[in-house]
Amino acid sequence: MTDKIYNVLFLCTGNSARSIIAEALLNRAGKGRFRAYSAGSQPKGEVHPYTLDLLRSLNYDISDARSKSWVEFSADGAPQMDFVFTVCDSAAAESCPIWPGHPITAHWGVPDPAAAEGSESEKRLAFADAHRMLGNRVNAFVSLPLASLDRLTTEGRVREIGRSLSEAG
């Protein structure tokens, strides 16, 4: 069971910032134990340029970064998800597709950096803050001993990650 690669889908409404950042974070921090994906309920169709700038500056592989619909992951032939995490409040409130395999779900809400106002440096800081908050959650998640936890315990732990780190960020 320790050789299992867990598929994780991060959902947001626009799939242009938070979910893309979370995908990049988990693909790096997961060290091959996880395969992260991202999608949106109403995808913007392009990744926010500040998202790409931030990830590029931190040496993430952004070659596969694209804004896409969650329909792509509920279609026949899509990877079966083990976990589905919403990272924005509006996506958490929407009716999600029925995911094959009944993945464990949790809400890890983070403020939308694309909605930040102010100077360019203040806007870019909002993207860095989102990266930091999501990074804290991803790091807590990858340190869970998933192979030794039952489903109920795992559900509780991933939901607690979203709750306990929401204020501390």
Rank of each mutant, 00 (worst) to 15 (best):
E122D: 15
W70G: 13
N7H: 13
V84R: 05
A93S: 14
H107V: 10
G77Y: 06
G162K: 03
R66H: 06
R56T: 15
R157W: 01
L52I: 09
S57M: 09
D129Y: 00
S74K: 12
S166W: 00
K31V: 11
R157V: 03
D89S: 15
V142W: 06
D76Y: 03
R56W: 00
P49F: 11
P43M: 10
S74N: 13
G156Q: 09
T51P: 11
A115P: 04
R56L: 05
G101Q: 14
I20N: 06
L26R: 11
G77C: 01
A39D: 01
P49T: 03
E160D: 11
D64L: 12
S119F: 06
S67Y: 02
L134A: 03
V71M: 12
V47F: 09
A126L: 03
A114K: 14
L11I: 07
I20Q: 15
T51M: 14
P49Y: 09
D150S: 11
H48Y: 08
K123I: 10
R137E: 06
C12M: 01
F85W: 08
T13Y: 00
E122R: 13
R66M: 05
D76M: 04
G156V: 00
T2K: 15
S164V: 05
E122Y: 03
D89I: 02
F73I: 10
D53H: 11
V110N: 13
T86Y: 00
R33L: 01
S148N: 08
R163D: 12
L165E: 01
N136R: 08
S164E: 07
